[in-house]
Simulated assay, not measured.
Amino acid sequence: MTTTSLITGASSGLGAEFARQLAARCSDLVLVARDREALAALAAELRRAHGREVEVLVADLLEPSELDAVVARIADAEHPIELLVNNAGIGLPLAFEANDVDAEVRHGRLHNEVPLRLMHAALPGMLERGSGRIINVASVAAFIPRSTYGAVKSWVVNFSRWANGYYGPRGVTVTAVCPGYTHTNFHERLGLPPGQEGVPGWMWLDAPRVVREGLRDAARGTAVSIPSKRYKTLVGLTKFAPAGLAAKIGARGR
């Protein structure tokens, strides 16, 4: 049976990789991002490679009217969304005191308010059908002190853990996927050239692996997915790390 998945931040990075792997698994797609040209190119690629139905929804999720359009699409009972991937995100420098406070507010809204609204739109239909999956892309930063980025991702993990336990018995699972440093264009958008993030090579993951393991764990109904054994181990060790050491770990990279 054909399903439909909606992915935010789908024009590049992990969002585009989610789209490619889901299309290969016979899912139709609704791709959401700001970059019209990139979305159109990806949609054409997926239609050509997999013969899937691909809908493009150009939206800046921080603009209320455009966010409302995405909410309405998710809530459309005649064209249900079986899998919601909340992937849209931005990064800021770690020096909170030096950042523009309005930029910090937008950062918080995109990582917390936007997925909250989209999940709230998706859940009634999923619960009525007795099935559905939600994937929230978080980060291992959720477990490590890392300025406001760690704080917003911690919210994503904690809410996902609660929602999975609460809605899972009714057929709807919620999974927080928590990658470590992953090769995408995320760091380039911060203005940092590849190889200059100050992070050892062994700490880097590739996007296909992150998405593959995230989809596997979501299918299993896992509340928190941490791709790779190395990051599972690191996250486990943070529980015992002194606060000062944890803060130094969180200061690595950008």
Results as ranks from 00 to 15, higher is better:
residue 86 N to V: 03
residue 172 V to M: 03
residue 93 P to I: 12
residue 174 V to A: 02
residue 116 L to W: 08
residue 66 E to S: 12
residue 131 S to Q: 12
residue 160 S to N: 07
residue 78 E to H: 09
residue 106 R to Y: 03
residue 134 I to Y: 03
residue 87 N to H: 01
residue 48 R to Q: 13
residue 74 I to M: 02
residue 95 A to I: 09
residue 51 G to Y: 05
residue 35 D to S: 14
residue 108 G to W: 03
residue 103 A to W: 12
residue 167 Y to A: 10
residue 100 D to N: 15
residue 129 R to H: 08
residue 171 G to I: 01
residue 99 N to H: 02
residue 98 A to P: 00
residue 127 L to G: 05
residue 69 A to M: 08
residue 156 V to Y: 10
residue 148 T to P: 13
residue 95 A to G: 01
residue 148 T to I: 10
residue 47 R to Y: 01
residue 161 R to V: 04
residue 47 R to M: 13
residue 133 R to C: 11
residue 38 A to F: 00
residue 82 E to L: 06
residue 104 E to C: 11
residue 173 T to K: 00
residue 101 V to A: 11
residue 133 R to Q: 13
residue 78 E to Y: 08
residue 155 W to L: 14
residue 44 A to H: 07
residue 49 A to S: 15
residue 71 V to H: 04
residue 61 L to E: 09
residue 101 V to L: 14
residue 100 D to F: 03
residue 159 F to V: 12
residue 71 V to D: 04
residue 77 A to F: 00
residue 171 G to S: 05
residue 146 R to A: 13
residue 173 T to G: 06
residue 142 A to C: 09
residue 142 A to R: 07
residue 159 F to M: 11
residue 113 E to H: 12
residue 90 I to R: 04
residue 33 A to Q: 01
residue 167 Y to T: 02
residue 172 V to N: 02
residue 41 A to W: 01
residue 134 I to E: 03
residue 50 H to Q: 11
residue 166 Y to F: 14
residue 135 I to K: 03
residue 157 V to W: 13
residue 97 E to G: 04
residue 114 V to N: 00
residue 73 R to C: 07
residue 142 A to L: 06
residue 133 R to P: 07
residue 80 P to C: 02
residue 79 H to V: 12
residue 93 P to G: 12
residue 98 A to F: 05
residue 170 R to F: 10
residue 127 L to W: 05
residue 37 E to I: 06
residue 77 A to C: 04
residue 105 V to K: 09
residue 128 E to I: 04
residue 71 V to M: 04
residue 56 V to Y: 07
residue 146 R to H: 13
residue 58 V to T: 15
residue 36 R to E: 15
residue 45 E to D: 15
residue 85 V to P: 00
residue 59 A to G: 11
residue 58 V to I: 15
residue 82 E to Q: 14
residue 100 D to C: 03
residue 92 L to T: 13
residue 134 I to F: 04
residue 107 H to I: 01
residue 175 T to S: 01
residue 79 H to I: 04
residue 127 L to F: 05
residue 153 K to Q: 10
residue 104 E to M: 15
residue 152 V to L: 05
residue 120 H to A: 15
residue 163 A to V: 02
residue 53 E to T: 07
residue 165 G to R: 07
residue 79 H to L: 08
residue 156 V to W: 10
residue 112 N to I: 06
residue 51 G to R: 08
residue 150 G to K: 13
residue 140 V to A: 05
residue 90 I to W: 01
residue 155 W to K: 07
residue 163 A to R: 03
residue 170 R to C: 06
residue 148 T to K: 08
residue 83 L to K: 00
residue 142 A to D: 04
residue 53 E to F: 11
residue 69 A to I: 04
residue 114 V to P: 10
residue 129 R to C: 02
residue 69 A to K: 12
residue 69 A to W: 08
residue 95 A to R: 09
residue 135 I to M: 14
residue 147 S to T: 14
residue 53 E to D: 14
residue 91 G to L: 08
residue 107 H to L: 06
residue 99 N to W: 03
residue 46 L to W: 03
residue 73 R to Y: 01
residue 52 R to W: 10
residue 39 L to G: 04
residue 62 L to Q: 00
residue 116 L to T: 01
residue 55 E to L: 14
residue 94 L to Q: 15
